[in-house]
Design a protein around this nucleic acid. Structure first.
Length: 346
DNA sequence: AATAAGTGCAACCGCGCCCCT
DNA sequence: TAGGGGCGCGGTTGCACTTAT
């Protein structure tokens, strides 16, 4: 049995919005807001439209400060960089481009930017490149060519992040100092080292290379941090349509709290995985640095590092369940999501 | 000038997730 | 705790407009 339709399809208008409908919707929302209920809104506003359609029209077209028109080079770079890092998470990308909507960016990417990049991509293909998440479609771009695009771009630094971008990749949460053992010699951050671009991107493209020490916004406690492995993120919008929150595995995380760092080693083969916990173990109060170990894999996942790491996480679960401190160490493992996200609360 | 092909983008759709009861 | 309703996301479609032949 399929789910019930969100509205009476027979009695709602579809297709392009008329100026009258636009003004009705705009007036109503400006006057009363969305009321947190899009389904009921059209009736209240006197519109014969599906609530979802109203929401889309508002978010993508009618809400204030929407920017239409050409994308700037800077916006191009932001989109490219974020796409390479997080894939087609348009809402997250849109959150970094004020005035742009996810739909806008998605369309722009699919119709223009992708072609633009393909046009300048070198023909020599190395190993086929595919994005790490099941959500990501395979791309004919090789890793090499993708990176070449960035190198060939006018960007003077890479990865590029706009000034207001609290990057996933460059900072830890301010409350969480970067573990000193990760800053050891031979470990470099990548944004400043152009020779490391290739390694950097390969690292970023593997979702297990993301880890996100963030505050748990559910209880606001700075001591209840979580590390998130994987890339399953979604973004929710404010009533005005601006994206203010990103959720990972169902937990909402303020963007200003987000961060991950991609560390690489100068050695070609040994940069790939950092699995670690750090900070104060709240059970016994002792420092708990580098509890997990660093692992090594090849660059293109020849050994299926994802599965490999799942085992590690599973191990951690079992050890955690045997741990007297497990009240403070909870791992959520969602295998139904193709092993995509792992959370570690500490 | 007519028509086919290509392009851009607004809108739709289905699904997964979260919240509330 | 389970189930239903609503929201939001990403993929897809449809159509108007533009360009090429």
């Amino acid at each position: 049995m399929g789910r019930a339709p969100c509205c009476d399809k027979a009695n709602v208008k579809k297709g392009p919005w008329s100026p009258e409908e636009d003004s009705k919707l705009k007036e109503y929302i400006e006057k009363f807001g969305t009321g947190g209920n899009w389904i009921a809104l059209p009736q209240k506003a006197g519109l014969k439209r599906c609530g979802k359609s109203c929401r889309l029209r508002w978010l993508n077209y009618l809400r204030p400060n929407i920017k239409h028109g050409e994308f700037s080079d800077e916006e191009d770079r932001i989109i490219c960089t974020l796409f390479a890092n997080i894939g087609s998470r348009w809402s997250i990308i849109a959150a970094q481009l004020p005035g742009r909507t996810d739909n806008d960016i998605k369309n722009y990417w699919n119709t223009k930017l992708k072609k633009k990049l393909m046009a300048v991509a070198p023909q020599s293909q190395t190993k086929p490149f595919s994005f790490p998440s099941p959500h990501h479609q395979s791309s004919p771009l090789s890793s090499h060519s993708l990176l070449s695009l960035y190198k060939d771009s006018s960007s003077s630094s890479f990865p590029y992040f706009p000034p207001n971008f609290k990057p996933f990749t460059t900072v830890f949460d301010p409350i969480s100092p970067i573990p000193s053992n990760l800053l050891a010699k031979n470990t470099t951050t990548t944004a400043t080292n152009s020779s490391s671009l290739f390694q950097t991107q390969e690292s970023l493209l593997n979702p297990l290379h993301y880890y996100h020490p963030v505050k748990d916004s559910n209880n606001g406690s700075s001591s209840n941090n979580l590390l998130i492995f994987g890339s399953e993120a979604s973004c929710s919008s404010n009533s005005d349509g601006s994206c203010s929150q990103i959720s990972y595995g169902g937990r909402e995380i303020k963007q200003e709290d987000m961060g991950f760092q991609s560390y690489i080693s100068n050695g070609y083969e040994e940069n790939q995985k950092f699995m670690f916990s750090y900070g104060i173990n709240s059970c016994n109060g002792s420092e708990n640095l580098n509890q997990w170990t660093e692992k090594t894999t090849g660059y293109f996942g020849e050994t299926s590092p994802f599965e490999y790491d799942l085992e590690d996480v599973k191990q951690l679960i079992s050890s955690s369940s045997n741990n007297s401190c497990n009240n403070n160490n909870n791992i959520l493992l969602d295998e139904n999501k193709t092993q995509e996200k792992y959370m570690y609360y500490y």
